[in-house]
């Protein structure tokens, strides 16, 4: 299932993308309940099971999932017989938003510059990004050179947790995952590489990775049952103004996405509100200076760094593509 959050007629809804249409799950389920089961509290039940919030729906677990399946089956059979459905709109009539507004995004941070330097693995890091600053498909990526000059973007696999938990073994990680989406990561290279100060190498994790647009999430969540052959083998591609910047499969990364989830779960409880982004090969790289101390390299993209007006397109096979453009946002307190 492809599940997204969208705005139609001024209302935020969650829906399932079917072809070039999007079906309002809560209203379809209410219709199913009232038409098939003759339930007189159909709307209230649909709000409890599905609601208009993706987080509420995912936290609803299996019973919410079954409700969505029943709603869609009902829609497909009834429409084949000619019923009309106001609950289903063409995608071009709605505005997609981030499929969910996370509490926070946890990103795989620095990877070692050379895979053979095993000691560097100990220094690998993860970042926390602010969830309320995550944007959706088509939203502008702000660029204010006086705050952060050299922006780069990356395409990363966004992992949406289903059944939360702590201390999840690597071989059971998939049981805890609800689905996958695309996360376009935004980093400020100039800020990150300013980290070395007074014998201490700080990651400047606010200035470097928590900008006004912390990253873009979308366009929808593809549930894990639709990913064939494992997420490690999905091709990731990033274009800027139509020019291919990077192309890779998670299989080629130093960090394996599912092991990363297991690793994080040893530190904190996972929850659908915590979206995990599994990194890309072009991200910040730890290396060694001549004296053996740490260095951090944040390479430019093929096109250099982002400029105002750039159009970014991130694509992952079997999921879709997510487009955003770089703009200057004027909005003072």
């Amino acid at each position: 299932m492809k599940l997204g959050t969208y705005v139609f007629d001024g209302q935020t809804r969650i829906g399932c993308v079917v072809g070039d249409e999007v079906a309002d799950l809560e209203r379809l389920y209410a219709r199913y309940l009232s038409e098939v089961e003759g339930d007189r509290r159909a709307e209230g039940l649909a709000r409890a099971r599905i609601s208009s919030s993706m987080l509420h729906f995912i936290r609803g677990g299996e019973s919410s999932w079954e409700a969505a399946v029943q709603a869609l089956e009902h829609f497909e059979t009834r429409r084949a017989e000619g019923d009309l459905f106001a609950e289903v709109r063409p995608l071009r009539e709605v505005r997609l938003r981030a499929p969910l507004q996370p509490d926070a995004v946890v990103c795989a941070g620095y990877g070692p510059a050379q895979a053979e330097d095993m000691d560097l693995y100990r220094h690998a890091e993860f970042f926390v990004k602010s969830g309320p600053h995550v944007i959706g498909s088509g939203d502008p990526i702000s660029h204010e050179p006086e705050v952060a000059k050299d922006l780069r973007s990356e395409v990363e696999l966004g992992i949406i947790i289903g059944q939360g938990g702590k201390d999840i073994p690597q071989n059971e990680v998939l049981d805890h995952i609800f689905g996958f989406t695309i996360f376009t990561d935004i980093l400020a290279a100039d800020q990150l590489s300013m980290g070395m100060e007074g014998g201490v190498f700080h990651s400047r994790v606010l200035e470097g990775v928590c900008l006004e647009a912390a990253g873009a999430l979308g366009p929808w969540i593809v549930t894990k049952d639709e990913i064939e052959g494992g997420v490690e083998n999905l091709s990731h591609r990033l274009w800027v103004n139509g020019e291919l910047q990077e192309e890779f499969k998670p299989d080629e990364l130093p960090i394996d996405p599912l092991s990363f989830v297991s690793h994080l779960s040893t530190f904190f409880t996972l929850d659908p509100g915590i979206v995990i982004a599994s990194g890309s090969p072009g991200g910040p790289r730890l290396g060694r200076s001549d004296s053996g101390g740490p260095t951090l390299a944040v390479p430019a993209m093929k096109c250099g760094f982002l400029k105002l007006g750039d159009k970014i397109k991130a694509e992952i096979d079997s999921i879709g593509s997510l487009e955003n453009s770089v703009e200057k946002i004027h909005e003072d307190s």
């Binding site: 946890v106 014998g199 990651s203 530190f267």
Partner: peptide, 17 residues
């Protein structure tokens, strides 16, 4: 890090969450 461990790498990810 480095010679005699006199330099330090501060990681706010694992260290604080």
């Amino acid at each position: 890090w480095g010679e005699g461990g006199k330099e330090f790498h501060v990681r706010y990810g694992q260290g604080r969450n």
